[in-house]
């Protein structure tokens, strides 16, 4: 009898809590326009932009592999479909995984991964660019808002990565550099997968782990395709030139350190 009573109370509680959850679930969520704030715990990816061993600073001059000098006024790229692999084979896949890393905006360089389970992580994987599905799904918001100046309105699709700047060697549009790398359809897709091995990262849910990823902008101009700004300083459509640069930047990421 007592146990039956207890059972009843528990059922009541259970039902009430279900009702509460449903109630809460029904209150309208605001649109996800604001960026996630960095927290003091959790699993983070932090992107640090470099030109070889120097931190990327706007309006400072650098040399590319061909010894052309250049400076940068904008450096932005999309990172999407982030996943982590753990040593026991369970994977973390980020939901709604679309991030715009904008060198001019520090808050954009930290990605806080929600819901990562405790474990030993050995690999991080992501796509440079916005997957083709979101290029054909109509109007988007948040990181994918066309107002982020990373969207072609005349030939629907995202600019996956861009550099804007200046080089005395650049031959077109008085020395402007404008490399807008776009295209999601075969054979002009510039989407590139990146897989980085981690020195095993032990993560417990109340802990803070930051994986620092170094992005080397110099890779855009190095291998496999040496870029001379006298030949190539403007990319404003899909095609071979965008492909060349995408093949180059596919390996611009490396794990710098973890803390």
């Amino acid at each position: 009898m007592v146990s039956f009573r207890k059972f009843g109370v528990m059922r009541k509680l259970l039902i009430i809590s279900i009702a509460l959850v449903l109630l809460l679930a029904c209150t309208k969520k605001p649109d996800p326009v604001s960026e996630p704030k960095s927290e003091d715990k959790g699993f983070m990816l932090m992107f640090d932009n470099y030109v070889n061993s120097d931190k990327l600073i706007y309006d400072k001059y650098y040399l590319n592999e061909n010894k052309d000098s250049f400076k940068v006024s904008a450096f932005k790229y999309y990172i999407s479909n982030i996943s982590l692999k753990s040593d026991d084979g369970h994977n973390y896949i980020e939901e709604e995984s679309y991030h715009l890393i904008d060198n001019g905006k520090d808050s954009s360089k930290i990605i806080s991964l929600k819901g990562v389970k405790a474990g030993s992580y050995i690999q991080v994987q992501f796509l440079i660019g916005v997957d083709s599905a979101r290029n054909v799904s109509g109007a988007q918001t948040g990181a994918l808002d066309p107002n982020n100046a990373m969207f072609w309105d005349w030939n629907t699709g995202y600019i996956m990565a861009k550099i804007e700047g200046y080089s005395p060697q650049a031959s077109k549009y008085p020395n402007n550099l404008a490399l807008h790398i776009a295209g999601f359809k075969h054979p002009n897709s510039v989407l590139r997968w990146v897989t980085l091995s981690l020195p095993t990262v032990k993560y417990a849910e109340n802990q803070k782990v930051t994986v620092h990823i170094k992005t080397n902008l110099a890779e855009w101009f190095r291998t496999p395709n040496l870029i001379k700004f006298s030949d190539l300083s403007i990319v404003a459509s899909e095609g071979k030139e965008a492909q060349k640069i995408a093949d180059n930047y596919a390996d611009m990421f490396s794990i710098d350190h973890i803390d």
Binding site: V136, S137, G138, P146, D153, T156
Partner: peptide, 16 residues
Amino acid sequence: GGINHIENQPIAPIQN
């Protein structure tokens, strides 16, 4: 046919 989705159409004339 440069625009692949009706929701992406209005932004084009606005910004042209």
